[in-house]
Design a protein around this nucleic acid. Structure first.
Lengths: 300, 300
DNA sequence: CAATTGTTTTTTATAATTTAATACTATGAT
DNA sequence: ATCATAGTATTAAATTATAAAAAACAATTG
């Protein structure tokens, strides 16, 4: 076989759904209309109609199409269960790398990845081609791919890049007009930070989510497709690393809460310089944490 | 046929080259060694040896391999001429978009691109997948790809992103130690800028190259894989646009020369603040130029 | 003649296939 | 015996081939 016919199968079932809204004997609309209903090309629609006619569901002669009987469950085509939600492949892939601690310079086998993730090989290849733009993987000379991986170099460069983007975001946030949604969000976040600081002894692991929300809020001010694309990867990576490194987690998180609050304070005063200062202090801490988490991991 | 055997053909010829350095009757080294010489797997080496034996070039029994005669031109395998230099596909693709002024939201046919660029379809697909990370193209709902293109939005966001990266680069350049190669390069560039300013009346079109060199020099200070990856695309896009927009080219270039010199001056004084200021002025000009070039184009 | 259907062409997604790489096993020289 | 090397088997990657879908085109009918 060459190409799967899930498209056809889905369309067929969707058209059955549509037929159920009609009464028996009613005329069925034009092929173009049906193709819009099922969101497929006319080619697929006609294939569906052929089958419907064969099964005695409809009569079909030229432009006279007529529903002969109510479709039932036996009429429906089986859909091979999706299985591979290949849309969040990115998340799953990074997860895999980080969780199994795949070392740098590991050769990545497309065939292997295809099996582990249940995604066709060509999708894996396209995905890797995309990641190579982030310098995360690279083509090998003799074919195939290689994980450039989470080396120290990588972490340093990623952190630096993140800082550049985030300092910029902070600057822009400071300039945001009064009505901008970021202010409401920040005030909400301030409340949450203060609440967590109160219960830090027991709830310190809750900080992870708050951290992500905080940085997302700051970056939301920047409307830039390049920044957004990167932010996705950056936040994933930082996040997973934080989740592992359990050393001094409580102390670290308590300190980070204060750092976040300092940034919020400065921003609310519209003091861009102070906000940048606070942000860059916080980002330095983050970098250190990321690096030390890598170091611990290497020793393990 | 499934996969081309250029690898084998190249290896075979390279091994003949190697054999020519041996004298007739000499022993031929181990397969592993040969595989290193030809930079292919042993599998290919053995295929080559088989052919060599068949053609009476060598005797081969177990680990006894011996050169029987000098290889001549008739022994060589023909290499289907490369034709498709698929490495600079990126350059050629952007060139194509910009030169033919492919409008935004144009559906891109992989089959078509494959023909025009003489590159296999799967490579085109991987390439597009990569570009989609830059938001330049996107997958279409019914399969295939679409050019998101050089809309105003895109240009603005690209310019902004460029500014963020470049201001950062300028900052880092100001901190570069005395021995750093950037200083020699900048002083050379200062000379070239001044020279061009003298002959601007006639040579103003020479500025394009100088501009690229200048920005490359500044950015060379930043050792960051993410920045580097982006810089490639950014410089390509800005470049092509400048090459088109011929309105006021002389005036624009003369002004840009002064802006560049201002940046160099400030950097050589190690005055980071002044350098950033000068750079951000220059980047604003650049952005304006890019946008106006787009506007002109749209009217055309 | 506008809307629709019938037919053909082109394109895309995916499997099939050949080449190449790698892993594993066996053998012979020191 | 041990190490380098060769022989063999397994697995993966690159590329072709092809069914499925889309799109373009031509014909038809109300």
């Amino acid at each position: 076989m060459a190409r799967s016919d899930i498209r056809y199968r889905n369309a067929y079932n969707r058209l059955l759904d549509y037929c159920e809204t009609l009464s028996v004997g009613a005329a069925i609309p034009a092929e173009t209309m049906l193709s819009e209903i099922a969101d497929v090309s006319r080619t697929v629609v006609r294939r569906c109609l052929s089958r419907m006619e064969e099964r005695g569901l409809i009569s079909w002669k030229g432009r006279e199409k007529c529903l002969l009987r109510e479709p039932d469950d036996a009429d429906r085509l089986e859909i091979a269960e999706p299985g591979a939600p290949s849309d969040d492949l990115e998340q799953r892939f990074l997860d895999w790398i980080l969780r199994f601690d795949v070392p740098a310079d590991t050769p990545l086998s497309v065939a292997d990845l295809s099996r582990t993730f249940g995604v066709p090989q060509h999708e894996i290849k396209e995905f890797l081609a995309g990641l190579s733009r982030f310098g995360l993987v690279a083509r090998r000379q003799k074919g195939g791919w290689m994980l450039r991986g989470f080396t120290m170099d990588f972490a340093v460069e990623l952190s630096d890049f993140r800082s550049v983007l985030e300092i910029n975001a902070v600057n822009q946030a400071a300039e945001a007009p009064v009505g901008h949604p970021v202010w409401a969000r920040l005030s909400e976040l301030r409340r949450l930070h203060i609440a967590l600081r109160q219960s830090i002894e027991t709830d310190y692991h809750e900080f992870s989510k708050l951290d992500e929300a905080f940085h997302a809020a700051i970056n939301s001010v920047v409307k830039n497709r390049f920044v957004e694309e990167f932010q996705k990867v950056i936040s994933l990576i930082f996040h997973y690393h934080y989740m592992w490194d359990k050393t001094d987690e409580k102390t670290r998180n308590a300190a980070a809460i204060d750092e976040h609050l300092a940034i919020i304070d400065a921003l609310e005063r519209r003091d861009a310089a102070a906000a940048c200062d606070a942000a860059s202090r916080h980002l330095r801490t983050s970098k250190t944490t990321l690096l030390s988490s890598l170091r611990h991991h290497e020793l393990a």
